[in-house]
Amino acid sequence: MINPQWLRTFATLAELGSFTRTADRLDLTQAAVSQHVQQLERRLGPLLIRRPRHAEVTPAGRALLDYCRELDQAERRLHGRLADDDATHGEISLISPGSVGLALYPVLLALQAEHRGLRVRHRFAPDREVLEAVLDNRYELGLTSVRPDDPRLAAAPFSEEPLELVVPASVRVEGWCDLQRLGFIDHPNGPSMANRLLRQAFPGNPGVRSLPVHGFSNQISLILEPVARGFGFTVIPRYARQAFARPEAIAVVETTSPVVDTLWLIHRSEWPLSACAQLAMRRMRDASRPEPTVAKTKPSRSKAVACKTVRRPR
């Protein structure tokens, strides 16, 4: 690595064109200025043509001046990043479950549109990967449905995310047998989510694994597409349902005992958040997504395990 003092001496000499004035500005002797230039020229070749009244920079010297400017700019960027006093320039990095991510990603893009100095990096991931990514400093902010117990992570409640039973808009669910006729649209978290919600909505039911499976998707934004086409029902977080592009094609079955997960906003606790992250947090908390118009239907109050006691969908 080139000695930074030699570079400062050379850049000042190129600016002033005089060994004497360079020595005065840098509080050095003329001999020290000459020595610094000689050290550089031993490594890089001729940098100056020494004239009686001024020094002229060679092409190699101009290349070195470009290098000095690049170093100066990099140093200013480093100081700016460490000072972190500008919330409108820098990177916003968020890792979250796909459902809430569908709601938040447009919010962050709107923030980037307001401040073009921002860059948004967002990844959808399950809870375990969220925790690991924030701990490893690969993402500054994370959202998870599991409150971490690691002291290296700070966690605060961010929002609540209810699970919803979603069916085709034309279907009325009166009991368990209506779900049997519909069939289940599965997804990676489908069985666990469905069992948690259906246990409350239809007490005594034989479980989601007793239902026929009429489809599967691991893309959070596509899980409701087969439901909208009438191929079956599913259980999905509300944020994912709200982001669906055709709300008129689906219906939410209201339940008397909702199942609600708390989402936790996490970050490393050992150092302060960047100004960009703080701005993003405020915008995400303040953002309110309007509830899309969606049909709602209520299940029968009976346990409705026996199919013969249930009316067919109207």
Rank of each mutant, 00 (worst) to 15 (best):
H89P: 12
N218P: 11
L7H: 01
Q30M: 15
R51V: 06
L26K: 07
F233E: 10
L222V: 04
L141S: 05
T144Q: 07
D86C: 09
R229T: 05
V310R: 07
V259L: 00
M281D: 14
D86Q: 07
G98Y: 05
E248W: 02
T22M: 12
K308W: 12
S210M: 13
A201S: 13
A110I: 03
G98M: 01
L82T: 08
R229C: 02
V130P: 02
R50Y: 05
A103H: 06
Q5I: 03
L153T: 07
V107Q: 14
A228C: 08
E140A: 03
G98K: 11
V259M: 00
L108A: 12
Q38K: 12
A87S: 12
Q35K: 06
N3G: 05
T20G: 15
F184V: 01
R138M: 11
R312S: 03
Q200K: 12
D86E: 13
E129H: 10
S145H: 08
A83L: 11
E70Y: 00
R119A: 12
R268Q: 04
T293N: 13
R199E: 09
G190E: 06
P292Q: 11
A23C: 14
D66E: 09
V294W: 06
L222E: 15
A275V: 06
A287L: 07
M284S: 03
S18D: 13
L13A: 10
R285V: 03
P272D: 09
A280E: 00
M1L: 04
R138Q: 08
Y139H: 01
A228K: 12
G175M: 07
P313N: 11
V37N: 01
W264S: 04
L13M: 08
E41H: 03
T234Y: 02
A60T: 00
L197K: 01
T9P: 01
Y139F: 12
D24H: 13
A169E: 02
Y139L: 03
R285F: 07
D186L: 02
E41C: 09
P151L: 12
R121L: 13
A155R: 00
M1I: 03
